[in-house]
Amino acid sequence: MARTISYREAINEAIAQEMARDPAVIVMGEDNAGGAGGPGAEDAWGGVMGVTSGLYHRFPGRVLDTPISESAFIGAAIGAATRGMRPVAELMFVDFMGVCFDQIYNQAAKFRYMFGGNAVTPVVIRTMYGAGLRAAAQHSQALYPLFTHIPGLKVVLPSSPYEAKGLMTQAIRDDDPVVFFEHKAMYDTTGEVPEEPYTIPFGEAETAREGSDVTVVAFGGMVARALEAADALASSGIEAEVIDPRTTSPLDTETILESLAETGRLVVVDESTPRCSMAADVAALAAGEGFALLRAPVQQVTAPHTPVPFSAGLEDLYVPDAQRIANAAKAAVDWSR
């Protein structure tokens, strides 16, 4: 039975169900239980956003709090994965990748290739991204393009509770290293999610809305804004098709190009900064493999090439919103009416 739960609960449920199914699944991270060594409650936090709440007592000995030593514990998750474990490690904010990226991109990502196919590293690195909580420059970035750039990593961006559970279940069962991006402003969004475990395959885009005038490819937290824009566009007679790639690595280029073949117009919405972004990547795909399909220049809707600002008005300007997306779609349509 499907019922309505939050994005946060969906992730928690996927991890819990996989822990129940497979004793190799363990959870680790800073305050993933919370309260270690203190005189008060154990499982005090369940992670800084409460995503792993309740797992500590349900699965004794399998939820490990860590010192604030991202290199050591992310590396430990990777090492454990080479020896039959399936760790789910939390790199709290993706902004913290700077202090542990080596273990992710030089170790986990490369083992299989460097070792001639003789390595399997089924680690999941959960991490929060995205602006909207006024957390400013070092706690708000959308750094998924950096991980997408690295061969050997799979990069996942769920845009709804349904996707969060199915993609997390797939991530844990997947034999490759997966970086799982959770948009921190989405934890309380709700949606219908089946109670049973299920998987969503990587590399298959979801067509979140069908339309024939313009293709809007939106990533992660931008999907909801693209849908909002599409509703607004519909009232002015423009039908936007919204594509949610769900994973940036692998990327379902086929669905994007198929949609482009129908619409001839492309808008890419990406919360990251514009240079070497997913927006640039998809625009290059369209230019290289969909040139003959294009009836208008590709519109890239991204954050500006700046750090994420703190003050509310500035942050609101920073993040692409429905209005900007709709304007870009209109510009594409107007180009070739």
Binding site: L64, I74, G75, A76, A77, G79, T82, M85, N106
Partner: peptide, 12 residues
């Protein structure tokens, strides 16, 4: 590069 990985294999 190795010491974090060893924490992991020891943990396993």
């Amino acid at each position: 590069g190795g010491p974090p990985l060893v924490c992991g294999t020891a943990l396993a």
